[in-house]
Amino acid sequence: MAHAEGQYYIPHGSHWPLVGSVGLTTLLVGFASWLNGAEFGQLLMLAGVVITLVMMFGWFGTVVRESQSGIYNAQVDLSFRWGMFWFIFSEVMFFAAFFGALFYARQYSVPWLGGEGDGAMTNSVLWPSFEAAWPTAGPGEVGGEFEIMGAWGIPALNTAILLTSGATLTWAHHALKEDKRGQLALGLLVTVLLGVIFLGFQAYEYGHAYSDLNLKLSSGIYGSTFFMLTGFHGLHVTIGAIMLAIMLIRVLKGHFTSKNHFAFEAAAWYWHFVDVVWLGLFIFVYWL
């Protein structure tokens, strides 16, 4: 199909979205059934994951081929940019919900339970022996006593790792713009490796929390906010690292030009977003 310069490319019908819907639904129905105690749940989930992965390979593969064939003009490129930008914004708001929960618990619910402000009666009638403090597992000591992760051990190290990875990624981007393919590949590789190291540390940290500190997802509101925030962040690091790894493969295959490499930039934006979220986590979850 011929497309002269300056035309906005409208793709033909595609079956990938439908495959995606089937995949996601299978995954979620499987998960839900599993939560309800049905044995086939996990199998269904697995099938869902496979279908979703097939969809992603198929769909993104098509986009990559189209991009490589040069039918995307600057306007299409801009649509992708807006798309990625608003997608990341939606992710920011997803994290905002959990940060909101953290702030609410620390600023309001825990102090009220401890008798501050309007909570005097709450404390004296319902939870007479509870004193507000952070961290806490609440007046019911849900999950039992626990110790917390110090900010200046692994978390600080992880902060350094992620910040460095942001820098190496920017280095790679500059290399790409200057057509230095070797530096580009190296920069990307280092970034992905740093991401993996980060995840390794985090996994270690979780193991340590569960086996030595008795800090669990079920450790009251502290455990809930701690694991949900760091957990979703970790998931995003994983996704980001996979995205970057795919960029690395594409770089090795000779994709991208110094002018035209939106996929790379999208992955980079995503990585920086994950980075910024981590800073928020480091400050509000570990440090303060």
């Binding site: 929960a101 609410y104 619910s109 609440g138 019911g140 997802l217 509101i221 455990g223 809930s224």
Partner: peptide
Amino acid sequence: MLLTDKYFGTSFFNAAGGGDPVM
């Protein structure tokens, strides 16, 4: 958060754990 409160033991909306249904 509702899902994890029900199935994974979190306490977002449970006062005993330091959360709050009003949250």
